[in-house]
């Protein structure tokens, strides 16, 4: 279903230096529209830095980012989100003092507009409640809609974060370690959620759990020391001697 030439995200020579030390150097990413693309690599390989560059939470030192045919290298992070490239965070990102439903509604509010209206009642947002509840239901959280997000269990927070992100109906999702800290009992559920979320959009995820990577992703990019080591499907990448070397060298066997 994915046309190999239909690329949604392309980076050229993406580089980030911190005081002369390159955390990410010369990374060329080519991500196909509609695919699930995984980024793996040992700790400190520059995966999270890459995410921060793609969403402009960090400005790149060099290189360019083209998303959906437009150069977004100089956009602000909020502009990038509005273009449909939305990220999640390694530490689950919710609004702890707001209810689960309000969390999702915050995302829905953006497309509704009028978010600077300080003179109107929040009653105006009531029509969004139903859509928000449906999103919560889809991730199995409808029964805790009224609970403050900060009081939810860890797995529930991750599910809430996903529901909030999906509320934006983004073209492309960046998931930073979606399985980190998830208990075994929630594993399959989150995996199914990611699969559902990816149904008609592109997903780029950073993940340490290689079995998840193997089962979910269409394509894998391996990073080590800020550089692309290998790129291809799981079978190709797993056999690559440089990849095996990098993983064994850093004490990780996958």
């Amino acid at each position: 279903m994915t046309d190999p030439d239909d690329l949604i995200l392309v980076t050229r020579g993406l580089t980030k230096e911190f005081g002369g030390l390159a955390a990410v150097s010369d990374v060329d990413l080519r991500i196909r529209r509609g695919s699930i693309h995984a980024m793996i690599g040992p700790n400190g390989a520059g995966k999270t830095t890459c995410f921060n560059l793609l969403t402009k939470f960090l400005p790149p030192s060099r290189g360019s980012i083209v998303f959906d045919g437009k150069d977004i290298t100089h956009d602000r992070p909020d502009e990038i989100a509005r273009r449909g490239l939305v990220r999640s965070f390694q530490i689950s990102a919710v609004f702890p003092e707001l209810s689960a439903l309000t969390n999702v509604r915050i995302a829905l509010q953006r497309k509704r507009g009028g978010s600077f209206d300080f003179w109107r009642s929040e009653e105006q947002l009531r029509p969004l409640n139903e859509a928000a509840l449906q999103l919560l239901e889809a991730v199995g959280l409808a029964h805790v809609a009224t609970v403050a997000a900060g009081e939810l269990a860890y797995g529930q927070k991750r599910a809430l974060e996903l529901a909030t992100t999906l509320a934006l109906d983004p073209k492309m999702l960046l998931l930073d370690e979606p399985m980190a800290g998830i208990g075994r009992e929630d594993f399959r559920r989150i995996e199914a959620l990611i699969r559902t979320a990816a149904a008609n959009r592109t997903v780029l995820m950073v993940e340490h759990n290689l079995s998840i990577v193997a089962s979910l992703s269409d394509r894998i990019t391996v990073l080590a020391r800020g550089r692309v080591l290998a790129d291809g499907d799981y079978g190709t990448v797993a056999k690559d001697p440089a990849v095996i070397e990098a993983y064994i060298g850093s004490g990780r066997h996958g």
């Binding site: 965070f89 609004f95 009028g114 300080f118 003179w119 109107r120 929040e122």
Partner: peptide, 27 residues
């Protein structure tokens, strides 16, 4: 009125987690 308005909602979200509010597309 302000704290219980559409605007107030976004302010509370920013108070709770600003990077997340940015990542949802809010300036």
């Amino acid at each position: 009125r302000i704290v219980r308005s559409p605007f107030g909602q976004i302010c509370k979200a920013i108070r709770d987690n600003e990077p997340r509010a940015i990542s949802l597309g809010y300036r």
